[in-house]
Design a protein around this nucleic acid. Sequence first.
RNA 1: GCGAAAGUGGCGGAAUUGGCAGACGCGCUGGACUUAGGAUCCAGUGGCCCAAAGCCGUGUGGGUUCGAGUCCCACCUUUCGCACCA
Length: 712
Amino acid sequence: MYRPTEIEPKWQQRWAEAKVAEIDVAAPGQKLYMLNMFPYPSGDLHVGHGRNYILGDALYRYFRMQGRAALNPMGWDAFGLPAENAAIKNRTHPRPWTLANIERMKKQFARWGILYDWSKEIASCEPEYYKWNQWLFLQLYKRGLAYRGTAPVNWCPQDQTVLANEQVVDGRCERCGALVEQRELSQWFFRITEYADRLDAGLDTLEHWPEKVKLMQRNWIGRSLGADVDFQVPALGGAIRIFTTRPDTIYGATFMVLAPENPAVPALIADREDRDEIEQWITGVRNQSALERQEAGKEGRFTGKTAINPFTNEEIPIWLGNFVLPQYGTGAIMSVPAHDQRDFEFAQQYGLPIRQVIKPVSGDPPVGEAFTIKDETGVAVNSGDIDGLPVPKAIERIIEIIEERGLGKGTVRYRLRDWLISRQRYWGTPIPMIYCDACGLVPVPDDQLPVTLPLDVPFTGREGNPLAKHDAFVNVPCPQCNAAAKRETDTMDTFVDSSWYFLRFVTPRDGEKIFDPALVDRWLPVDQYIGGIEHAILHLLYARFITRTIHDMGLISFEEPFTRLFNQGVITKEGYKDERGAWVSPAEVQWKDGKPYRGDELLTAEVTKMSKSRLNVVPPDELIARYGADTERVYTLFIAPPEKEAAWSDEGVVGAYRFLGRVWNMGVALSGGEAIPPDRQAGLPDLHQSIIRKMHQTIDAVTSRIERFEFN
RNA sequence: GCGAAAGUGGCGGAAUUGGCAGACGCGCUGGACUUAGGAUCCAGUGGCCCAAAGCCGUGUGGGUUCGAGUCCCACCUUUCGCACCA
């Protein structure tokens, strides 16, 4: 009889006592580094989380069976908002809540039978770890890659903090769903835009990354080739510079549009009679969220001024438009309404001229709308020197002319913006800077690191960062002049913590330096990284960026941290929503006529990602107590191809248990054991020979298949 | 709107290079064992047909091929990503 609940604890205990997964990184041998994305210690893990770790463990054990020792560490992404919110709710402190969760989750990993090298464990909330966040920040500051700047930033009114662009989804806070506001604030940034070209080019070297992730990063970086062109503005006695990806259409530029935020605007409208009205309109647009701004449709105001199109020499009107983004390009565009949908809508709205300058090679252009042709199927018309050239050639030629005539130059622009890393929250790494009235911004000297997060802080949930009210933390002498000064009270985005942790795992206890460069160069890059697709942009882009900055400090020789990336699919399960759209616990659901009800209220069933908030999680504990961890592991590996989404089924779990029971019985039978009743044992020896031969053949076939198609 | 991926039994899903469609598991049906079992074992299970023979069958419609789930064209549906980025 197969009794996993007796077998498994015995072996799990032996693995733990023998520390089977611990390795000496200094010992000679072939290196292999496997890594699962380290989790946020939120408390209980469910079977959906389990897939990530079970897949990683299956691969790790596969390598072990081939005799390859792998570095396979685990740690905790332990700073962050949920701990702080839990502390406010429970009137406690984020630290004990976090540490208790870590203990709980470690036990769950052990019970899953997952082997990690716990001697390498790190937790980002410990000073011995976040000290190096601060050191890294100061290194970036010295190199001009960390800076304090004023910019329109995303403010989440619910979480009372600013957010990175990457953390805003559909105009809402990625975490809490509140509508994000634009605020002009002075904040700390990392200059990731400095690395935009290298981050984009590096994607081509990542042969073993999913195409989907590379594409998402490429779109996020948003590399565009085009040209900067100066348009003279007589009223200003100077020029306004525009950026365009289609300089070949410049003969069709019949007006110019500036973002309301463009710095040239005040001078342009200074003498206007309707200046007050325009300024009011500008203020209105600026106060809108990105979402509201877009939903408002195309709106604009005429400045009353004109610019000279340098190719047609016509005077074209300069407008302000709510659809021109201040942060992209130069915050000014030349409008070609014949060939750009947005420009076309604007021209229609305000009765501005439309001039066709591209002709399809075959067929007629559509009437009553803009049409865009980017390839050889279009040729330039009404375009002077470039008439008759196919579009790609026309772009090349017109850039040459622009440069010859000193009107501007061919340029590359990126959509990517600098990474906003300050957060007005407590449970994070303190930013190691000091404000001195005399000396200005002063970095904390390296020998005073870490700037320790004070623990004697009350959590009331009232407005503001509790750190700012902690006098002993805030009031410090200036490291340069010793006068009374104040500490920065912002903390770092937790994505800073996770942007280099994979380097720390090699030498996690080093108190002298961030890591041992020789050993890191030997073990990194990570050979196999496993985690969810939700980090396709955020974590993976930041990690690639920070790795490059550390490379440029001369500490490591590689630029890409993860050679091979795998995104496991999510586990889904049915969840139930009431009429207001709130999730209902399955315990409250009653079934009538095959439909889910809560009392008389009809509920809607929906198969969605397994998560605590949707109340559709399956905790592993009970399942393991009944069927064993191997049952969950086999079922999880068997449910669907690992990269695909998979629906959890409680019946399917029983099937995996039966399957393992049959394997067990076969093993016992082959060893002449007790699983076969005595009255059926006649003739067994002969049967054994044929079964054993057949099994060896089958095992060989299955093993080679698994190696070739499943693991490799 | 732009980009990407995917549509195969009652269900999850196999089918590696164009070569027996539906592996394996769940569920279901029948049987064995005999009531300690959400147990175990055996057989069956795409549809039409009492059965056999046969015919039909991988979202829809065309095409290439001796041969198509797989390749080509058009369309439909779903999911995901980006979204005023000039």
